[in-house]
């Protein structure tokens, strides 16, 4: 089975867009979660090689989810994808264990740069 990438965003449109970018670059095994709580559940179930995490979401936000996931797996690869680009929020995300921070809107190349940088690959 290909390694899983988990996309976490409450907007179905954004999940679809990210999934499309990843699929075109050869990443075929993709799971989705609509909030941080579901992301934690799916992380435990699928152990993705990378999690792309929005911040502002219902139920559990992305920063809290990063902290949960990093407790479960201190080596988890997580990249934040958010429209909220304040410096202190970027710092909090990185300090919580995120490896990169992609600001929406982003060109596909920027997303792929962050994905490949986090997992050290160029597609499956």
């Amino acid at each position: 089975m290909d390694s899983v990438i988990l996309i976490v965003d409450d907007a179905i449109f954004m999940r679809s867009m990210i999934k499309s970018i990843l699929s075109k670059s050869g990443y075929s095994n993709i799971q989705e979660a609509e909030n941080g709580a579901v992301a934690v559940e799916k992380y435990v179930r699928y152990r993705p090689i990378l999690t792309l995490m929005d911040i502002t979401m219902p139920e559990m936000d992305g920063i809290a989810a990063v902290k949960f996931i990093r407790k479960i797996d201190p080596e988890a690869n997580i990249v934040m994808c958010s429209a909220i680009s304040q410096e202190d929020m970027v710092i909090e995300a990185i300090e919580s264990g995120a490896k990169d921070f992609v600001i929406k809107p982003f060109p596909p190349e920027r997303l792929l740069e962050a994905v490949n940088g986090a997992i050290g690959g160029s597609g499956e």
């Binding site: 907007a11 179905i12 449109f13 954004m14 429209a83 909220i84 809107p105």
Partner: peptide
């Protein structure tokens, strides 16, 4: 969903 995300990005 697309429009909500557009609004969210612009307001953010």
């Amino acid at each position: 969903s697309a429009l909500k995300e557009v609004g969210n990005i612009l307001l953010g």
